[in-house]
């Protein structure tokens, strides 16, 4: 979706303000939110792409006004309500009011933590040969899906060069909506700064994205 999260190239946010000696978490609740999201994903309540899509669909003013883990919490709440794991009234009350719904996997104990915190693997067997190879010129398609996509707006319609083939991987666009893993070839595509940002761009800058094959056409 052309949402507020897709902010590459946007102006007006001010300078980056690095935080010296940044802690892992700024409050204890942030660690709990991380644990809840990972545990519910591992329990089979949702996949990583669906959880990302729910963060992206937060109302723009909420998205922009929320910290990293606040977005995780708000997206998780909406997702669990939509999937029927909790009721909105339970979130408002701050405690369970109905019997728990069974999960595909889980519940977990302390011994499961290390396994659950390891990210999944996304590589899959290929069902067709790769259409592109390193060195090929490709154009990012001018497409505007209304659901989750990993194709940033700022590359759409622009021409770059394939630099690397990452093999076949789970396609987030379909995984996010529950339409299946639908594995696709994944490539690193490099764009010149001027191709994306016009003649005034810094000529010493190149920008890469990782692009799934359906995002690309030969150029």
């Amino acid at each position: 979706m052309n949402g507020v999260h897709d902010m590459g190239g946007m102006d007006g946010f001010g300078k980056v303000e690095p935080e010296p000696n940044e802690p892992m978490f700024h409050s204890e609740w942030e660690a709990r939110v991380l644990a809840m999201v990972r545990a519910m994903g591992a329990a089979g309540a949702f996949n990583i792409d669906t959880s990302r899509f729910y963060r992206e669909t937060l109302p723009p003013h909420i998205y922009l006004g929320s910290s990293y883990y606040k977005k995780w919490l708000l997206g998780l709440e909406d997702l669990l309500v939509d999937k029927g794991f909790v009721a909105a009234s339970e979130i408002a009350a701050g405690h369970a009011m109905e019997p728990a719904k069974p999960l595909k996997r889980g519940k977990f104990t302390r011994d499961d933590v290390e396994r659950i915190m390891v990210r999944g693997k996304f590589g899959r067997a290929a069902s067709a040969p790769a259409k592109f190879k390193p060195g090929d010129r490709v154009r990012a398609r001018n497409i505007h899906p209304t659901t989750h996509t990993r194709l940033p707006r700022y590359v759409r319609g622009h021409v770059g060069v394939v630099e690397r083939d990452h093999g076949c991987q789970v396609f987030p666009d379909t995984a996010a909506t529950g339409a299946g893993e639908n594995p696709q070839w994944l490539y690193t595509v490099v764009f010149n700064g001027a191709e994306l940002w016009g003649p005034d761009a810094d000529p010493s800058v190149k920008i890469s994205i990782d692009a799934f094959e359906p995002y690309l056409e030969a150029a």
Partner: peptide, 15 residues
């Protein structure tokens, strides 16, 4: 320095 090239990687997949 201006003569140092800059490469930006936008991490758009799981890599």
């Amino acid at each position: 320095p201006q003569e140092t090239d800059i490469r930006v990687w936008d991490s758009t997949a799981e890599t």
